[in-house]
Design a protein around this nucleic acid. Structure first.
Lengths: 346, 346
DNA sequence: TTGTAGGCGTTATCAT
DNA sequence: ATGATAACGCCTACAA
């Protein structure tokens, strides 16, 4: 049955040896009599023994736990953003296979008392062996202090400087260029964009890609064709309204996220236009639903799980002392569906 | 600067008192000289001291950590399901405010060696003070053992028996009834449903609600109007195809999830029908995108964050020894958008 | 008001 | 091959 907590001491008593021997037996040391070991292992299995992580961590200074910072504030609903969850799933899988568990920092004052805990403090408190940063502001003083500290960090979608830090991200700039080129090849010339949050690394990179590809294509770059959004659907709608009010409205728009692309479609529909006939739109992310909306979204597919896996590998590398090379950048794939078509007149 | 780990012993030495005094001062005991306390606190702040969670946990037997089981298996991509993420956000917020952090179990063999760890074992290993179960199979032997054990559990969307367990869920049955009634009041009489996974508690409850409301309305219940799905979009599409092939196809369908509702719309569109003109559809969940697809989805809004908050409160109650009453059930709200309308002929 | 010391459950060092 | 024993960092009687 499920007895109460069984400790190494009880195992020792019941198997008639000292705790030292039990510890060695269970930890696979060579110098222990095979049949003693067998007896101990059997007993441990019967009693469903598991060592206390706290004690082990105290002694060995290894917690086998990795921290996760994923902000959930009111204005920063990242935990709610599906993107990070899929990344987290990949991450969890990778580090889980390596024997780590994940500590999702939730409390600003863990335990009782001791006031508010900074990022760094929380890491030290739990003695995590590394930490992954998602959706955090790299300019934040706390974050910077963390990056400068001894704790191993890996950031996804956030550029992280520092000797003990690595970053992983999709090729956001390249993806944006693919989007623009696709639209161009369809015959579009007035191509607008609705940006993401420009303070975020992906937001900035996607705008950069838009600009660069326009330039590479020899297309004029016009300020009026840029609407500023925040990745969410409403801003896509608002941006579209603004774009459509132009004297010469665009025939195509590249939205820096699928959510905004949905907003674009909604706004266009509201304005009596039809996508893609009157307005072509491409999104970014290829989230689950992109394929299921009407029309199905042409978009850039990010390898979200892959991002998590890469982050996990990078962090494990950091922990094991053989940090990989530079920041990992994962390629992005254009998936063409129903929301893009040649321009009307063309 | 960010010195290395500072311990209570160093604090004691530097402030010229014993470790006992430091501990008492920092933990707010009354019997300590105010100015001694002040001195110690200042030093602690300067050195950015934080107690080692492992040591404290070892001594006090309280970890201030709550475990999370959220399966991510291949066939069970729950960590990817947006629903649970929002629930988790609410949960995190609630238990975070109470001073707990979240341990997301990732590894089946935490630490090194000691073989695979069962659910219960993993809880004991980390000495978590409670655990939340999301998307797990309640029939699973491991889960049942966990529920029978001394560890406090709260399940969301999973019915959990046991003295140390509580469950929270939306009023799935009531929601389904609202959906059916809405369709009925619009004039529909041939109302079909596409079910979720019937092994899941919400899946079963929603089908039950569908049946009961039909009965309450005096409508005949017909097997052919039930298509079996799995909550995901593809099954919505497949189910619709099947439904539309009927001699007397339905004029309305209640899909047990928004994803499936999207599949319904896709399938209807493919069949040359228009929603809601030719087919009315209501979903369940009101996920972020429900409002942004074409047509915007009529659906049942679940209070996801509220579910997480309720779960957190229930768990904290369990831990503090004043468990609330029965399982919490959160009400659900019908939000009417564009995917429902009166039937064509009516 | 403060210091001392034992112990939480482990691992690791040193004898034996 | 195994048994003592000393840490690991902290809390908490118990003494003083």
């Amino acid at each position: 049955m499920s007895e109460q907590k069984v400790t190494i001491k009880q195992l020792a008593r019941l198997s008639g040896v000292s705790v030292g021997t039990v510890s060695r037996a269970l930890n696979g040391y060579a110098d222990v009599n095979p049949e003693t070991r067998e007896r101990i292992e059997r007993l441990a299995r019967e009693l469903d023994y598991t060592p206390a992580a706290a004690a082990r961590s105290l002694k060995t200074q290894r917690s086998h736990v990795i921290g996760v910072f994923l902000e959930t504030g009111e204005g920063h609903p990242d935990l709610v953003h599906p993107h990070f969850h899929e990344v987290l799933a990949g991450f969890k899988h990778t580090i889980g296979a390596a024997g780590y568990d994940l500590l999702l920092f939730a409390s600003e004052r863990p335990g009782n008392g001791f006031g508010e805990h900074s990022y760094l403090k929380r890491c030290r408190h739990h003695n995590v062996e590394g930490v992954v940063l998602m959706g955090v502001d790299p300019e934040n003083a706390e974050v910077r202090r963390l990056l400068r500290s001894e704790v191993k960090c890996v950031g996804v979608d956030v550029s992280v400087p520092g000797a003990t830090a690595r970053g992983v991200a999709s090729d956001n700039e390249g993806g944006a260029r693919l989007a623009v080129r696709h639209l161009y090849e369809l015959g579009h010339r007035r191509i607008a964009t609705i940006t993401g949050l420009l303070e975020s690394s992906p937001g900035a990179a996607r705008l950069r890609g838009y600009r660069r590809e326009l330039q590479a294509l020899g297309l004029a770059f016009r300020d009026e064709l840029i609407a500023y959004g925040d990745f969410y659907a409403d801003s896509g709608r608002a941006g579209t309204a603004q774009l459509l009010a132009l004297d010469e409205p665009p025939t195509a728009v590249f939205a820096a996220s699928d959510m905004m692309a949905l907003g674009v479609i909604t706004a266009a529909t509201d304005a009596g236009m039809s996508v893609p006939r009157d307005l072509a739109v491409v999104g970014f992310d290829d989230m689950e639903l992109a394929a299921h909306v009407q029309p199905p979204l042409t978009t850039l597919r990010q390898n979200r799980a892959g991002l998590g896996v890469a982050a996990g590998q990078a962090l494990i590398g950091l922990i094991d002392g053989d940090p990989g090379p530079a920041p990992a950048q994962l390629s992005v794939e254009l998936v063409i569906r129903g929301s893009t078509a040649p321009p009307r007149a063309g």
